[in-house]
């Protein structure tokens, strides 16, 4: 499996979206490449740990090769014995896929809100690629491919959006 397939597999487990939604076989936007690059660069820069991204990918690949289900892999990655930096890097990847933006997390444990998060969009395309619009069964604000009056009807099923 090449790094991109591993990345897409990992992303699928974390985001809850099927691989062929994240990276369709005929991929006209190819947003995955931008995300892998941005995730790698940002995590490396923020943690100073040039190996972290590969550690995560490798752990995913191993779990996957061991025949674990997506749920088991997710549990292992996020709630296993991984370091806080490992888990945070995974969470940031989730956020990136959903918003198309890189998050800046200000954790304030113990407060009523637990802190806050700001973020910065990667590109116009990453904005319109955000999974957040899919998970709400809608479309990016400002970029609808639906037709007049669709809003008076029920949307397609959630599973059509997530591919799961």
């Amino acid at each position: 499996m090449d790094i991109m397939s591993t990345f897409v597999g990992l992303s699928s487990v974390l985001t809850g979206f099927a691989q062929d939604i994240l990276a369709p076989r005929l991929d006209t936007t190819n947003i995955k490449t931008l995300y892998l690059q941005s995730w790698t660069e940002n995590i490396t820069q923020e943690t100073g740990d040039a190996g972290l991204v590969n550690t995560i990918l490798q752990q995913y690949a191993e779990l996957q090769a061991a025949g674990k289900s997506d749920e088991e892999i997710g549990e292992q990655l996020m709630n296993g014995n991984n370091s806080p930096a490992f888990v945070l890097a995974c969470q940031k990847l989730i956020f990136l896929w959903y918003m198309g933006a890189w998050p800046d997390v200000n954790a304030q444990p113990g407060t009523e809100t637990g802190g806050f998060t700001t973020s910065s969009l990667l590109s116009a395309e990453s904005y319109t690629s955000g999974l957040v619009w899919q998970v709400m069964q809608a479309h990016p604000m400002g970029d609808s491919n639906y037709r007049y009056g669709y809003w008076a009807e029920q949307p397609p099923a959630l599973s059509d959006f997530t591919g799961n």
Binding site: A101, F116, V132
Partner: peptide, 26 residues
């Protein structure tokens, strides 16, 4: 979107364990 800066707020809350949307705390 206008009221609470969503969808970003709710997303960040459930990904990073925050509660600015009031949906994920006490």
């Amino acid at each position: 979107q206008w009221a609470a800066d969503d969808p970003g707020t709710t997303l960040a809350d459930f990904v990073f364990g925050q509660n600015n949307s009031q949906l994920n705390g006490n």
